[in-house]
């Protein structure tokens, strides 16, 4: 673990105001709008209330935006002059990947901490297990979207593609039962989209599987979604990275 590298990377991220706005400020703003100003915010859900439910959703959205863009930027860096420059030093690939993974987790932690702090202050209630469990799942699960960022960055090889990748998280969020509460056929379709399993799993410690429309789903449904999409992203990212290497 190279502390200098990690520290300088974190400083660079702190200087990226636009990036921080989209990964932390915007999801926090969404939480305040959708989670703390609605009438139903104190309505009970599982071991907590609606505010907690929205808090987890928005933290997940922010964390995934953060890991997607970190993964995408890392992929771009590797392919551009900077990656070649790093490739000429004794720095090992494994150290680089490990450092980027730490960075992605730290950056994902920013919206989670911010939104959970706002939640505690603005009336989100729940058991200790719901708070801790959901927070950890949000953080850990966001890692698979770093792979999504890597795969988009490597496949399209452009900065704008990385921007589009983080932007596409918004669409996945709508489709994945994060921004709006889905029901009926839309909900059935949503279960196959990338963010659904992740956010449902994160809410599980709070809801125990009960959905806002009153239905219940077993734990294996969100788990299958997370594992399935993790595998898809992982395999595609590996394939694109390999293809990129062969082309050099």
């Amino acid at each position: 673990m190279n502390a200098t590298f990690t520290l300088i990377e974190l400083k660079r991220i702190a200087r990226d105001r636009t990036g921080l706005f989209f990964t932390a400020v915007l999801p926090a703003f969404f939480f305040i709008i959708f989670g703390t100003t609605v009438e139903s915010k104190d309505t009970a859900i599982g071991s907590g209330n609606v505010a907690t439910y929205v808090m987890i959703s928005m933290a997940a959205y922010g964390a995934v935006t953060a890991t997607t863009s970190t993964g995408g930027q890392a992929a771009m860096e590797r392919m551009q002059g900077w990656g070649r420059q790093l490739g000429l030093t004794p720095l090992k690939d494994a150290h680089y990947v490990g450092m980027k993974a730490v960075i992605a987790m730290v950056v994902a932690g920013i919206p989670v901490l911010l939104i959970y702090a706002l939640g505690a202050w603005a009336g989100a209630r729940g058991s200790m297990g719901a708070w801790l469990g959901s927070g950890l799942i949000v953080l850990a699960g966001s890692a698979i979207f770093a792979l999504y960022g890597v795969l988009i960055g490597t496949a399209f090889r452009s900065e704008s593609a990385v921007g589009v990748a983080s932007g596409s998280v918004v669409i996945f969020a709508f489709l994945g039962n994060i921004f709006i509460t889905l029901s009926g056929p839309m909900l059935a379709v949503a279960k196959f989209t990338p963010l659904y399993g992740y956010v449902s799993l994160a809410r599980y410690p709070l809801t125990q599987g009960y959905l806002p429309d009153g239905s219940w789903e077993p734990l294996w449904v969100p788990l299958a979604g997370v594992i399935g999409w993790g595998l898809v992203f992982g395999m595609l990212a590996t394939w694109f990275v390999k293809r990129g290497r062969d082309r050099q």
Binding site: R12, R15, D16, E77, Q80, G81, W82, R84, Q85, L88, T89, P90
Partner: peptide, 16 residues
């Protein structure tokens, strides 16, 4: 790479 320093023709650095 411990003993050979290389400056590349198109060595780019992160802007910030």
């Amino acid at each position: 790479h411990e003993h050979v320093g290389v400056q590349l023709q198109e060595g780019a650095m992160p802007p910030k």
